[in-house]
Design a protein around this nucleic acid. Structure first.
Lengths: 106, 106
DNA sequence: AATATACGCAACTATTTGGTTTCGCAATTT
DNA sequence: AAATTGCGAAACCAAATAGTTGCGTATATT
Protein backbone atom coordinates (compact mmCIF):
# COMPACT_ATOMS: atom_id res chain seq x y z
CA UNK A 1 0.00 0.00 0.00
CA UNK A 2 2.06 2.86 -1.33
CA UNK A 3 0.47 6.14 -0.48
CA UNK A 4 2.47 8.93 -1.90
CA UNK A 5 1.31 11.91 -3.85
CA UNK A 6 2.86 10.75 -7.15
CA UNK A 7 1.02 7.48 -6.97
CA UNK A 8 -2.16 9.40 -6.13
CA UNK A 9 -2.04 11.61 -9.22
CA UNK A 10 -1.10 8.72 -11.50
CA UNK A 11 -4.74 7.75 -11.96
CA UNK A 12 -6.66 9.91 -14.47
CA UNK A 13 -9.92 9.61 -12.51
CA UNK A 14 -8.17 10.93 -9.42
CA UNK A 15 -6.70 13.84 -11.38
CA UNK A 16 -10.22 14.62 -12.61
CA UNK A 17 -11.53 14.50 -9.03
CA UNK A 18 -8.79 16.89 -7.96
CA UNK A 19 -9.74 19.28 -10.75
CA UNK A 20 -13.40 19.04 -9.77
CA UNK A 21 -12.98 19.82 -6.09
CA UNK A 22 -10.19 22.35 -6.54
CA UNK A 23 -12.60 25.27 -6.60
CA UNK A 24 -15.47 24.00 -4.45
CA UNK A 25 -16.00 21.27 -1.89
CA UNK A 26 -18.21 18.41 -3.06
CA UNK A 27 -19.84 15.28 -1.66
CA UNK A 28 -18.93 11.81 -3.00
CA UNK A 29 -22.32 11.49 -4.69
CA UNK A 30 -21.99 14.84 -6.42
CA UNK A 31 -18.49 13.91 -7.59
CA UNK A 32 -19.62 10.50 -8.83
CA UNK A 33 -22.29 12.11 -11.00
CA UNK A 34 -19.49 13.50 -13.15
CA UNK A 35 -18.10 10.07 -13.95
CA UNK A 36 -19.56 6.87 -15.16
CA UNK A 37 -18.41 4.77 -12.25
CA UNK A 38 -20.10 3.96 -8.99
CA UNK A 39 -20.15 6.12 -5.89
CA UNK A 40 -18.12 3.43 -4.12
CA UNK A 41 -15.35 3.58 -6.69
CA UNK A 42 -15.14 7.34 -6.20
CA UNK A 43 -15.15 6.77 -2.45
CA UNK A 44 -12.10 4.56 -2.80
CA UNK A 45 -10.30 7.21 -4.81
CA UNK A 46 -11.22 9.78 -2.19
CA UNK A 47 -9.81 7.54 0.50
CA UNK A 48 -6.49 7.33 -1.32
CA UNK A 49 -6.45 11.09 -1.87
CA UNK A 50 -7.32 11.67 1.79
CA UNK A 51 -4.67 9.25 3.03
CA UNK A 52 -1.93 11.11 1.23
CA UNK A 53 -3.45 14.38 2.45
CA UNK A 54 -4.22 15.77 -0.98
CA UNK A 55 -7.84 16.14 0.03
CA UNK A 56 -9.59 17.11 3.25
CA UNK A 57 -13.08 16.26 4.44
CA UNK A 58 -15.66 18.22 6.34
CA UNK A 59 -18.73 16.51 7.73
CA UNK A 60 -21.98 18.42 7.47
CA UNK A 61 -24.90 16.42 8.81
CA UNK A 62 -24.87 13.13 6.96
CA UNK A 63 -22.96 14.58 4.05
CA UNK A 64 -19.20 14.76 3.79
CA UNK A 65 -17.69 17.54 1.72
CA UNK A 66 -14.33 16.89 0.10
CA UNK A 67 -12.02 19.66 -1.00
CA UNK A 68 -8.49 20.00 -2.31
CA UNK A 69 -5.62 20.53 0.10
CA UNK A 70 -3.80 22.92 -2.17
CA UNK A 71 -0.73 23.06 0.09
CA UNK A 72 0.02 19.43 -0.70
CA UNK A 73 0.14 20.20 -4.40
CA UNK A 74 3.20 22.29 -3.73
CA UNK A 75 5.11 19.09 -3.04
CA UNK A 76 4.93 18.24 -6.72
CA UNK A 77 6.04 21.75 -7.53
CA UNK A 78 8.95 21.31 -5.16
CA UNK A 79 9.98 18.08 -6.86
CA UNK A 80 9.73 19.73 -10.26
CA UNK A 81 11.94 22.58 -9.14
CA UNK A 82 15.19 20.66 -9.72
CA UNK A 83 14.16 20.01 -13.33
CA UNK A 84 12.88 23.51 -13.85
CA UNK A 85 16.40 24.63 -12.99
CA UNK A 86 17.74 22.41 -15.75
CA UNK A 87 15.42 23.67 -18.46
CA UNK A 88 15.90 27.26 -17.44
CA UNK A 89 19.61 26.70 -17.58
CA UNK A 90 19.37 25.22 -21.06
CA UNK A 91 17.32 28.20 -22.11
CA UNK A 92 19.96 30.57 -20.80
CA UNK A 93 22.67 28.70 -22.65
CA UNK A 94 20.64 28.98 -25.83
CA UNK A 95 20.20 32.65 -25.09
CA UNK A 96 23.95 33.05 -24.76
CA UNK A 97 24.51 31.43 -28.13
CA UNK A 98 21.96 33.72 -29.70
CA UNK A 99 23.49 36.90 -28.27
CA UNK A 100 26.91 35.70 -29.31
CA UNK A 101 25.67 35.22 -32.87
CA UNK A 102 24.13 38.68 -32.75
CA UNK A 103 27.36 40.41 -31.71
CA UNK A 104 29.31 38.47 -34.33
CA UNK A 105 26.95 39.78 -36.96
CA UNK A 106 27.66 43.38 -36.05
CA UNK B 1 -0.96 -0.45 -20.91
CA UNK B 2 -1.36 3.14 -19.84
CA UNK B 3 1.62 5.15 -20.86
CA UNK B 4 1.31 8.68 -19.70
CA UNK B 5 3.81 10.78 -17.89
CA UNK B 6 1.95 10.75 -14.58
CA UNK B 7 1.91 6.99 -14.52
CA UNK B 8 5.60 7.02 -15.43
CA UNK B 9 6.65 9.18 -12.49
CA UNK B 10 4.42 7.29 -10.05
CA UNK B 11 7.10 4.68 -9.48
CA UNK B 12 9.86 5.74 -7.06
CA UNK B 13 12.53 3.76 -8.92
CA UNK B 14 11.63 5.59 -12.13
CA UNK B 15 11.83 8.94 -10.37
CA UNK B 16 15.27 7.95 -9.12
CA UNK B 17 16.32 6.96 -12.65
CA UNK B 18 15.11 10.33 -13.92
CA UNK B 19 17.16 12.11 -11.28
CA UNK B 20 20.21 10.02 -12.17
CA UNK B 21 20.18 10.67 -15.89
CA UNK B 22 19.01 14.27 -15.67
CA UNK B 23 22.54 15.61 -15.75
CA UNK B 24 24.39 12.96 -17.74
CA UNK B 25 23.46 10.15 -20.11
CA UNK B 26 23.98 6.66 -18.71
CA UNK B 27 23.84 3.05 -19.85
CA UNK B 28 21.35 0.58 -18.32
CA UNK B 29 24.16 -1.26 -16.56
CA UNK B 30 25.53 1.93 -15.05
CA UNK B 31 22.05 2.92 -13.89
CA UNK B 32 21.35 -0.52 -12.43
CA UNK B 33 24.51 -0.30 -10.31
CA UNK B 34 22.80 2.42 -8.32
CA UNK B 35 19.89 0.19 -7.33
CA UNK B 36 19.60 -3.25 -5.91
CA UNK B 37 17.52 -4.67 -8.68
CA UNK B 38 18.52 -6.45 -11.85
CA UNK B 39 19.59 -4.82 -15.11
CA UNK B 40 16.46 -6.21 -16.73
CA UNK B 41 14.19 -4.54 -14.22
CA UNK B 42 15.87 -1.21 -14.96
CA UNK B 43 15.54 -1.93 -18.66
CA UNK B 44 11.81 -2.32 -18.25
CA UNK B 45 11.58 0.99 -16.44
CA UNK B 46 13.63 2.60 -19.20
CA UNK B 47 11.27 1.18 -21.77
CA UNK B 48 8.29 2.75 -20.02
CA UNK B 49 10.13 6.06 -19.71
CA UNK B 50 11.12 5.89 -23.38
CA UNK B 51 7.60 5.02 -24.52
CA UNK B 52 6.16 8.11 -22.89
CA UNK B 53 9.10 10.10 -24.29
CA UNK B 54 10.50 11.16 -20.96
CA UNK B 55 13.82 9.61 -21.90
CA UNK B 56 15.78 9.38 -25.12
CA UNK B 57 18.39 6.83 -26.17
CA UNK B 58 21.57 7.14 -28.13
CA UNK B 59 23.36 4.04 -29.34
CA UNK B 60 27.13 4.10 -29.12
CA UNK B 61 28.68 0.85 -30.25
CA UNK B 62 27.09 -1.88 -28.19
CA UNK B 63 26.13 0.53 -25.45
CA UNK B 64 22.95 2.55 -25.30
CA UNK B 65 23.04 5.84 -23.45
CA UNK B 66 19.83 7.05 -21.86
CA UNK B 67 19.21 10.67 -20.99
CA UNK B 68 16.32 12.79 -19.79
CA UNK B 69 14.07 14.50 -22.28
CA UNK B 70 13.67 17.63 -20.21
CA UNK B 71 11.05 19.12 -22.54
CA UNK B 72 8.61 16.40 -21.53
CA UNK B 73 8.92 17.38 -17.88
CA UNK B 74 7.28 20.66 -18.76
CA UNK B 75 4.03 18.78 -19.25
CA UNK B 76 3.82 18.22 -15.51
CA UNK B 77 4.62 21.88 -14.99
CA UNK B 78 1.83 22.77 -17.37
CA UNK B 79 -0.63 20.58 -15.47
CA UNK B 80 0.46 22.14 -12.18
CA UNK B 81 -0.07 25.62 -13.54
CA UNK B 82 -3.83 25.61 -12.86
CA UNK B 83 -3.20 24.77 -9.21
CA UNK B 84 -0.34 27.21 -8.91
CA UNK B 85 -2.87 29.85 -9.89
CA UNK B 86 -5.06 28.79 -6.99
CA UNK B 87 -2.37 28.92 -4.35
CA UNK B 88 -1.01 32.20 -5.62
CA UNK B 89 -4.53 33.57 -5.50
CA UNK B 90 -4.94 32.40 -1.92
CA UNK B 91 -1.65 34.04 -1.06
CA UNK B 92 -2.82 37.31 -2.60
CA UNK B 93 -6.03 37.14 -0.62
CA UNK B 94 -4.02 36.62 2.55
CA UNK B 95 -1.84 39.53 1.52
CA UNK B 96 -4.90 41.72 1.13
CA UNK B 97 -6.09 40.82 4.62
CA UNK B 98 -2.67 41.66 6.02
CA UNK B 99 -2.47 45.07 4.32
CA UNK B 100 -6.00 45.81 5.43
CA UNK B 101 -5.03 45.03 9.03
CA UNK B 102 -1.98 47.23 8.65
CA UNK B 103 -3.95 50.26 7.44
CA UNK B 104 -6.50 49.75 10.19
CA UNK B 105 -3.70 49.88 12.74
CA UNK B 106 -2.50 53.21 11.49
C1' DA C 1 37.17 -17.69 -35.20
C1' DA C 2 35.83 -18.13 -30.31
C1' DT C 3 34.54 -15.81 -26.24
C1' DA C 4 32.73 -12.08 -23.63
C1' DT C 5 29.89 -8.10 -23.05
C1' DA C 6 25.72 -4.96 -23.47
C1' DC C 7 21.49 -5.07 -24.34
C1' DG C 8 16.28 -5.91 -25.60
C1' DC C 9 12.52 -9.10 -25.54
C1' DA C 10 9.29 -12.74 -24.15
C1' DA C 11 7.38 -15.83 -20.78
C1' DC C 12 6.18 -16.40 -16.16
C1' DT C 13 4.95 -15.00 -11.21
C1' DA C 14 3.50 -12.43 -7.12
C1' DT C 15 1.48 -8.28 -5.83
C1' DT C 16 -1.18 -4.18 -6.47
C1' DT C 17 -4.88 -1.72 -8.40
C1' DG C 18 -9.47 -0.16 -9.91
C1' DG C 19 -13.75 -1.68 -9.85
C1' DT C 20 -18.24 -4.13 -8.19
C1' DT C 21 -21.44 -6.00 -4.79
C1' DT C 22 -22.98 -6.29 -0.28
C1' DC C 23 -23.31 -4.78 4.14
C1' DG C 24 -23.87 -1.68 8.34
C1' DC C 25 -24.23 2.72 10.56
C1' DA C 26 -25.64 7.39 11.34
C1' DA C 27 -28.35 11.40 9.99
C1' DT C 28 -32.75 12.78 7.77
C1' DT C 29 -37.46 12.60 6.40
C1' DT C 30 -42.04 10.85 6.64
C1' DA D 1 -41.04 4.89 15.05
C1' DA D 2 -40.20 3.47 10.16
C1' DA D 3 -38.28 4.35 5.82
C1' DT D 4 -34.86 6.79 3.24
C1' DT D 5 -30.48 8.76 2.22
C1' DG D 6 -25.32 9.44 2.38
C1' DC D 7 -21.64 7.32 3.41
C1' DG D 8 -17.41 4.05 4.65
C1' DA D 9 -15.70 -0.69 4.92
C1' DA D 10 -15.06 -5.45 3.69
C1' DA D 11 -15.08 -9.25 0.42
C1' DC D 12 -14.34 -10.37 -3.97
C1' DC D 13 -12.64 -10.17 -9.04
C1' DA D 14 -10.21 -8.99 -13.36
C1' DA D 15 -6.55 -6.44 -15.15
C1' DA D 16 -2.19 -4.16 -14.69
C1' DT D 17 2.36 -3.85 -12.69
C1' DA D 18 7.12 -4.74 -11.01
C1' DG D 19 10.03 -8.08 -10.87
C1' DT D 20 12.60 -12.62 -12.26
C1' DT D 21 14.60 -16.06 -15.43
C1' DG D 22 15.95 -17.41 -19.80
C1' DC D 23 16.62 -16.49 -24.18
C1' DG D 24 18.63 -14.10 -28.91
C1' DT D 25 21.43 -10.64 -31.23
C1' DA D 26 24.88 -7.30 -32.14
C1' DT D 27 29.31 -5.35 -30.90
C1' DA D 28 33.86 -5.88 -28.93
C1' DT D 29 37.83 -8.44 -27.24
C1' DT D 30 41.13 -12.32 -27.37
Amino acid sequence: MRRDIFQAIADPTRRAIIALIALQAMTPNAIAENFNTSRQAISKHLRILTECELVKQEQQGREIYYSLEIEKMKEIDKWLEQYRKIWKNQFNQLDEVLTKLKTQKK
